[in-house]
């Protein structure tokens, strides 16, 4: 039973963060929201009894992907289009 509640909370967190990825005005905020999506997803994978995949998602999806995206944003920060800053 407690598992189902954890799953529900994580799905809600994930979807809210997913909407935030699309609606954040700043690109770096969108990246932080994408990282939150990954963390919630890795908790969901633990609930689904896939600890291997959860570890990969936490290390690669939440860690490395966000670092790569943030480095790219830092490099192209000055050449954003007009409505995206």
């Amino acid at each position: 039973m407690i598992m189902a509640w954890v799953a529900l909370a994580c799905v809600v967190t994930m979807l809210v963060a997913g909407v935030l990825v699309l609606t954040q005005r700043k690109l770096i905020g969108a990246i932080a929201a994408a990282s939150v999506v990954s963390v919630a997803l890795s908790v969901l994978l633990v609930v689904l009894r896939a600890p291997d995949v959860a570890l990969a998602e936490a290390a690669v999806g939440a860690g490395l992907s966000s670092v790569l995206l943030a480095l790219a944003v830092r490099r192209v920060g000055a050449v954003d289009s007009k409505e995206d800053t």
């Binding site: 690109l27 994408a34 999506v37 997803l41 999806g61 992907s65 995206l69 790219a72």
Partner: peptide
Amino acid sequence: RHALRLLLGLFLLESGVNL
């Protein structure tokens, strides 16, 4: 409208399929 937003969308799509 921004290329990095496109990549973020791809990331979300991938996460959904994985789950």
